[in-house]
């Protein structure tokens, strides 16, 4: 069976580190940067476990600032 592979690109400067994408992710892919902050001082979201992403876009749907682009493909 083909396996879905996904990835997200976070607009780091637009992100406010609200954590809602992290909560929404069903695959434990995302986390907030523990130390690094963006120009506005927010700990932005990033893919902590990129290999787990299935491209379901849950994170992007709930993101209030539309910072997340989602890519999805099938691993052959």
């Amino acid at each position: 069976m083909a396996k879905f592979r996904g990835a997200v690109v976070v607009n780091e400067e637009r992100c406010k580190g609200c954590d809602l994408c992290v909560v929404a992710c069903p695959c434990d892919v995302l986390a907030l940067q523990p130390k690094e902050v963006n120009n506005r001082g927010y700990h932005f979201a990033y893919m902590q476990n990129p290999e787990k992403c299935i491209g379901c876009a849950s994170c992007a749907l709930v993101c209030p600032d539309a910072c997340i682009e989602v890519y999805k493909t099938t691993e052959k």
Partner: peptide, 16 residues
């Protein structure tokens, strides 16, 4: 499969 193989315009399923 590398991340760069996934992040391609044709694979984009959600964006602002």
């Amino acid at each position: 499969m590398e991340i760069n193989d996934i992040i391609k315009p044709e694979n984009c399923v959600y964006k602002k």
